[in-house]
Amino acid sequence: MNPHQFSESEIAGVYRAINQRRDMRHFLPTPIPPEQLMRFIKAAHHAPSVGYMQPWRFVRITDPALRRDLHSHVNDERLLTAQALGERSDSFMQLKVEGMLACAELLAVGLTDGREKHVFGRRTMPEMDLASASCAIQNFWLAARAEGIGVGWVSMFDPEVVREKLKMPFGSRPIALLCVGEVEQFYPAPMLELEKWDSRRPLSEVLFENNWGESAPADTPETAKEIKP
């Protein structure tokens, strides 16, 4: 037995949070205790980051007028997205793509300014700041799911418009609006899968060996279905 591994129940809990995490769009207005929200933010702040740059910043939206303003902008972008989708626009418009007005908490996640100073791990891949902040959001998401709280990632916005609305400094960049709150139930599968928008790829389509496109050995377990701990 690996002396560093968690107990069987703890391992099961980690995999359960991963498998049952959902991008939520339907929320209850029940308030979230401040200490609970802070636990999720602390979990995010413990994410790995390239060069230990910790590029993430969180803005809690508590002004109702600002929340409505952001929602209006997202809705404008929703219409533009529908136009860009062409023949799939009607199907897209039938989807619920955000829960910004119903959720208990709305957070903006952004990349800090001055990121060009961080060269460690980013000389050839400057986008690793975004990768690091995405890890922070995933930590937040999994911690929330473990405590029965839903999270929805809204990305349909113009970063420059949102940056100005939130008075973020020049050089910073918003990457997500997170809807956070209690839900009546978690979707049994990803919503876009339930709505037949797309489906999860089998592992054989995303796992290669040595060369891109070279299939993994035949004895590699096929896990198109969710892995159960």
Rank of each mutant, 00 (worst) to 15 (best):
F120V: 13
A146E: 13
I149G: 05
Q138I: 12
G86I: 07
R60Q: 14
Q54S: 10
D69S: 14
H45N: 14
V151R: 02
L85Q: 10
L37I: 10
H46F: 09
R163Q: 09
H46R: 12
S134H: 04
H46M: 12
E116Y: 13
V109L: 02
A133V: 08
L107H: 01
A44C: 04
A84L: 11
V151Y: 02
L80W: 05
E164Q: 15
I149Q: 05
A133T: 12
L85T: 07
L37D: 10
L37V: 06
F40I: 01
G150M: 08
A82C: 10
V154G: 04
R60N: 06
I149D: 03
P48L: 04
V50S: 14
A84T: 02
P29M: 00
T62R: 12
P55L: 05
R115S: 11
M128D: 02
A102N: 13
Y52L: 13
G121S: 02
P34R: 09
G51S: 02
L85S: 06
M100T: 15
F92P: 06
H118W: 15
L28D: 11
G114Y: 07
D90M: 04
R122I: 01
Q138E: 14
G152I: 05
L95E: 15
G99S: 06
M93C: 08
D63I: 11
W56Y: 03
L111I: 15
W56I: 01
A144F: 06
P169E: 08
L130P: 01
H45D: 11
A108C: 13
C135P: 03
L79C: 02
R145M: 09
P126A: 15
D76K: 10
P64Y: 09
V97R: 10
L111E: 03
A133W: 00
T124P: 00
V151T: 14
V74W: 05
E164S: 13
V59M: 04
L106P: 00
A136I: 00
K167V: 06
S134C: 15
P126V: 11
M125K: 11
R78T: 12
G110K: 00
P126L: 06
R67F: 07
R67M: 03
L111W: 07
Q36I: 14
W141L: 01
D69V: 05
M168V: 06
V109P: 00
E35S: 13
R25K: 15
P29V: 00
R88A: 04
R57F: 04
V59G: 01
A136S: 01
V162M: 01
P55E: 07
R57N: 05
K167F: 08
H26N: 10
H118C: 10
Q36D: 09
P159G: 04
P34I: 05
H118S: 12
R68P: 02
Q83A: 13
E116P: 01
L107S: 00
L101N: 12
